[in-house]
Simulated assay, not measured.
Amino acid sequence: MSRTTTDRVLNRRRVLAVGAALLMTAGAAGVAVASGDEAARPASSSAAPQTADKTPTAEKATKREAAALTGTAKMYRKTTEDVTFTFDAHLAAKHNGDPSKATGTFRFVHLDKPGGKGGWAKGRIDCLMTGGKVATATGIITGTNMKDIKGGRVGFTVHDTGGTDRVGYSWAADGPDGTKKLPKCTSSAPHEKVRKGTGDFHVTPWKVPYPTAN
Rank of each mutant, 00 (worst) to 15 (best):
P114H: 14
F87Q: 06
H95P: 03
T86S: 12
D37W: 04
P205Y: 10
T4M: 06
F201N: 10
R14A: 12
I141Q: 00
S46H: 09
P42F: 08
W206M: 06
Q50D: 04
G175N: 07
R107P: 07
A17H: 15
L10D: 10
P99K: 05
T130W: 01
A61H: 00
D160G: 04
A92F: 07
A89Y: 00
R107H: 10
A173Y: 12
R166I: 02
G199L: 10
T105C: 02
L182R: 09
A102C: 08
T204E: 08
P42Q: 03
V203D: 04
G163K: 10
A28R: 03
A135Q: 02
T130M: 03
L91R: 07
A137K: 05
G119F: 07
T55L: 06
V109W: 00
K193R: 10
P99S: 12
T103F: 06
A47F: 09
T138D: 02
G132Q: 00
V134T: 14
A137E: 05
T84S: 09
T4Q: 14
T70N: 00
L91W: 11
N96K: 02
V194I: 13
A26V: 14
G131V: 14
T80R: 09
R12K: 14
Y169E: 07
E192A: 13
A61G: 01
E38F: 12
G115V: 08
D7N: 11
K63G: 07
T72L: 05
G163A: 15
D148Y: 01
T6P: 03
K122W: 02
A66K: 05
K193E: 13
F108Q: 10
A34V: 11
A58H: 05
V31H: 08
R124L: 11
V208D: 06
R77N: 13
E59Q: 07
G123E: 01
A29G: 14
G119H: 07
L111G: 06
A189N: 07
T103M: 03
K207M: 14
A48R: 03
D165Y: 00
T142H: 00
F106W: 11
A17F: 15
A47E: 12
T157Y: 05
I140W: 04
D200S: 10
P190M: 06
K60W: 00
D160Y: 01
D112G: 11
D82G: 00
S46G: 05
S44T: 11
I141G: 02
S35K: 09
K63H: 08
A34H: 12
E38I: 15
K113F: 05
R153D: 04
A32Q: 11
D165K: 03
S187V: 02
V109M: 13
